[in-house]
């Protein structure tokens, strides 16, 4: 018996290589992934290369050097208390990525299981879960986050919780839609017919096959979450001085906009670049996980 010559490579390796190929195929996606990688490195290595970590972490002031424009000594200039803006903006990357990860992660933790259960079980459970998400979705997310943050009290942690509370219903919805379309697939039917318990079906068959759209959405949301947390801090509901949070820096910087434009410029740019990069990554992921772009 003659066997076909086309025995493919091991699946996992092939998948990784193929994903790599797709990432590099679209130059914008490559740029997005590149920036995110750089941001991660910056956030991790901040204490190593930042000239004045004490300005960022402790908020040590040095009023004699207040509002200096960018120079060799102060790359991004200094703020009204004489702190090195470069150090503070770089440390801000840590805070922003942390907020993004934790807030999105918490929202996923709430939203995904609820969507899974609602979509798979349907009926009354679905009805209850979806009406609750509808209530949450009827508020603009920023407004809801502001309300919750105000209720919980001013702190960065509370801001993250507030954002997660405003965001989870989106994941529930997305997840439910994907799960409903998967529920009818023959491999799920097969599992039910062989008597596989419902929880096992939900986890082993449905969940693993419905994560891609949620992951894409989460990476797109990363940017919006960072923006929202900046907005909360800007309003005084999030990070508290002297934390080097970009929104908080901006809220002080706007008072000195005319005399020290760099003060607003650098944290602003940092935010724009970060949000843009995560959007590019999200778009790229969408393309990679889209079955239509895979193979022939």
């Amino acid at each position: 018996m003659a066997l076909p010559a086309n025995r493919p490579r091991p699946a996992v390796l092939e998948q990784i290589r193929y994903s790599g190929y797709l990432i590099t195929k679209n130059s914008l996606t490559t740029v997005g992934f590149g920036i995110v990688l750089v941001l991660l490195v910056i956030a991790l290595l901040a204490p190593v290369f930042v000239p004045h970590p004490e300005h960022a972490v402790l908020g040590t002031t040095n009023v004699a050097e207040a509002l200096r424009p960018p120079s060799g000594r102060y790359l991004f200039g200094t703020d009204e208390l004489g702190r090195d803006l470069f150090s503070r903006v770089i440390y801000g990357t840590r805070i922003s990525l942390q907020i993004g990860t934790l807030a999105v992660g918490l929202a996923l933790l709430i939203g995904v299981p609820l969507g899974l259960v609602a979509g798979y079980l349907g009926g009354f459970v679905d009805e209850v879960i979806m009406r609750v998400t509808d209530i949450f979705l009827s508020f603009p997310p920023l407004l809801l986050a502001i309300a919750v943050a105000a209720l919980l009290g001013r702190s960065l942690t509370n801001a993250m919780i507030a954002i997660a509370i405003a965001w989870w219903p989106w994941y529930t919805r997305l997840m439910r839609g994907t799960v409903i379309s998967l529920r009818e697939k023959p491999f799920v039917e097969a599992a039910r017919m062989m008597g596989t318990p419902a929880t096992r079906i939900m986890v082993r068959h449905v969940l693993v096959n419905s994560l891609s759209p949620v992951i894409v959405q989460a990476s797109l949301d990363f940017g919006s979450v960072i923006l929202t947390s900046a907005a909360l801090s800007f309003l005084g509901l999030g990070a508290q001085p002297p934390q080097p949070e970009w929104g908080l820096i901006l809220s002080t910087a706007r008072n000195y906009f005319l005399v020290a434009p760099w003060y607003s410029f650098f944290p602003g740019m940092a935010m724009v670049i970060t949000v843009l990069a995560f959007n590019l990554v999200g778009d790229g992921l969408r393309e990679i996980t889209d079955p239509k772009t895979r193979r022939l």
Binding site: M1, A2, L3, P4, A5, N6, L296
Partner: peptide, 19 residues
């Protein structure tokens, strides 16, 4: 016996020869 070949890497010569 056998299976249809991969359209990207068809067998050389007569494509039916493996079967």
């Amino acid at each position: 016996e056998g299976f249809p070949p991969d359209p990207i890497r068809p067998p050389p010569g007569c494509r039916f020869h493996p079967r």
